[in-house]
Computed example of a mutant assay.
Amino acid sequence: MTAAGKGATKAASSDALIVEFAGEEFTVVPGDVFTVGREGDLAIDDNLFLHRHFLTIEYVERLWLLSNVGSRLAATVTDSGGRVQAWLAPGARLPLVFAATSVVFSAGPTTYDLVLHLDAPAFREMQPRDEDGGLSTIGDVPLTPAQRQMILALAEPMLRRDGTGMSELPTSAQAAERLGWTLTRFNRKLDNVCDKLDRSGVPGMRGGVRSFATNRRARLVEHAISTRLVTREDLPLLDAPRPSAGEDDS
């Protein structure tokens, strides 16, 4: 991994934006066009699945804008609390209005996570009113214990890493082995969860003629992490007693 950034050497101002990746910080000031990709101000990785120039950040009319300048990859963008989520498709742009914005995307088998910080955000996050006994509606998709274990097996490397950065996405065979399942059972759970999220309006969960199996798993992990569908605190469930195939076929 390499990282470089002309903004890293500039003095911060009240309008500055900080890009945090893998423990490093890059300061971007109005007038800069900060580029993220295989090349650019933040040269993330030599991953050939990643665009040379994938994301740009620039200050336009008193707003910071995040743009997807790639042609194939999308990014999941959320506020720090996981309460607001957007899918940034190729050609799309999004204003950055929160104090901290998480950007998660996958290129091939690798998932990347960076955080964008604003000192003077347009919106301040507010604590939600506790009208439902502390239960959150974000990512509130009913899952069976086995379905949650399936998601955790895929998301485990990303949940265990320290700080922002990158993690390798397990193959279906590796995740199935982690759970002690057959590959057929794992794929059935994956199909069921992706269908459930697709019906809930989550984009990218259905495969197509030009879609690869890796893409759907990566998109599931992106969604699960960014919406707190699973968290690091859920990891002990991976080693919890597992229902047999006959007890949980969903």
Rank of each mutant, 00 (worst) to 15 (best):
R83P: 00
V104E: 04
M158I: 13
H117T: 14
S172Y: 00
A86F: 10
G91E: 11
V141S: 03
C194K: 06
F98R: 00
F186Y: 07
T182L: 04
V104Y: 14
P109F: 06
L179I: 10
K189R: 15
R178V: 07
S136A: 12
N192V: 11
I151E: 00
R178N: 02
G134K: 09
P90I: 05
P95V: 12
E168I: 15
I151F: 05
A99F: 03
G165M: 07
Q147P: 01
Q147C: 04
P203E: 11
G207S: 10
T171E: 03
R83F: 10
L169S: 14
S200R: 06
G201M: 02
L114E: 02
A175R: 10
S200P: 04
C194A: 13
D198Q: 00
L94A: 04
F186D: 00
P109D: 05
A146Y: 05
L143N: 04
Q127S: 11
F186A: 08
T184K: 14
R185I: 05
P203D: 14
G204D: 06
D113E: 15
A176C: 04
V103W: 00
A146D: 07
L159E: 13
L190T: 04
L143I: 13
R199I: 06
P142N: 11
M126C: 11
L197C: 01
G134I: 14
T184W: 02
M205P: 03
L152Q: 11
G207F: 02
G201K: 07
K196F: 02
L183S: 09
D198T: 09
G201N: 12
V97L: 04
V193C: 00
D191P: 00
S106Q: 15
L96M: 09
R129A: 10
R160F: 11
Q85E: 15
T78Y: 09
K189M: 13
M166H: 06
A146L: 09
A92Q: 14
P90S: 06
T110F: 13
A92P: 03
